Amino acid sequence: MSARPAGTAAFSKFVHLLQLVADSDHPCTVPELVHLSGYPRATVYRTVAGLVAERLLATGLGGKTYVLGPRLIELASRSWDRSELRRVALDELVTLRDVTRETIHLAVPNDLNMVYIDKLESPKAVRMASRIGASVSLHSTAVGKAYLAALGEASCARIVSRLEFYRYTSNTVDSIEALQDQLRVIRQRGWSQDDEENEEGIRCFGAVIVDGGGQPVAAVSVSTLRFRQKPDPRQAYVAPLLAACAAISRRIGSVPGSAYRCPKDA
């Protein structure tokens, strides 16, 4: 077996500590990072100091806690800006936001989740708490269910069999059978719905983006608040959503060499 490249172990520690800080719902202290990582205190102090020096971490109030630093956020922003899919989709997403006047999400699959790679805020006063880079469940979201429904049966079954059916609200589907029932409806009508299944008071409508070979590569959702949902959501949200996804899919199919990958049936 070939030797690991020099510096790999140190780099892994840097990445692991960054991930712990990113996953935490509050600023982290060194003792917390020692506990969570299992690294010696001296190693954590040294690694954190290096991350702070490179602006990948920043100190919180009082100088004893740590949060993600400005350089990391800048790098992440550039990554999203350079995303080919995001660039291809942006004009249609802007039009969709302007037509519906609601929040638009663009999401891509990542194992058993969907990850938001773009978000266009509603111009209305009350906005969503979601953010670019956030992971959301496949079974409880419009983007997740749209993606699952567009997969081949074998690929879909493999993924669904691995899901943990966490209930975010009283409306969340909590079994394979219930999800499969929803997916059959989605396949028939061509769009998905999250009826307050991921968050109370939020309703979303989703549709899939496909590549030139007809394989699903991403999904788009229109998210609205229950109290301001328009009386005819199919006309107000679903029709422009389907038009936007169809246009983006055509653009992807027309880009030479664009090869977005997703699971295919064996």
Rank of each mutant, 00 (worst) to 15 (best):
Q229T: 14
A259T: 07
L225N: 09
A219E: 12
S175E: 02
D194Q: 06
V143Q: 12
V220G: 06
N198A: 14
K230Y: 02
V238K: 10
E200S: 11
C156R: 14
L148V: 03
D194R: 06
D265N: 12
G201K: 12
I252W: 13
V210T: 15
N198M: 13
I186S: 04
Y168C: 06
D195V: 08
P233Q: 12
V220S: 07
I176Y: 02
Q235Y: 01
A244F: 03
L163A: 03
P263Y: 10
I186A: 03
V220A: 05
A219R: 11
C156Q: 14
A246V: 07
Q193A: 15
C204P: 04
L179C: 01
V210E: 14
G144A: 11
Y166A: 02
R158A: 13
V185E: 15
Q188L: 15
F205V: 09
E177W: 01
E177D: 10
Y166Q: 04
Q229Y: 09
S155T: 12
P216V: 14
G213S: 14
A178E: 04
K264P: 02
Q235G: 11
Q193G: 09
L148T: 03
A244L: 10
A244H: 06
A219P: 06
P231K: 15
E199D: 03
A157E: 13
L183G: 05
N171P: 00
R184G: 01
Q180A: 04
C204V: 07
A236Y: 05
S175G: 00
N171C: 05
L241T: 05
R250C: 09
A219H: 11
I186V: 13
A246T: 13
E197G: 09
E196I: 11
S221D: 15
P216T: 14
V185P: 02
T169N: 01
W191M: 08
L179A: 02
V220F: 06
V210A: 13
Y166T: 09
V238W: 05
Q229K: 15
G257H: 06
T224H: 08
T172C: 05
I202M: 07
K145E: 09
A207E: 08
P256M: 10
Y237H: 05
V238S: 06
S192G: 03
D195I: 09
C262F: 09
A218M: 14
R158G: 04
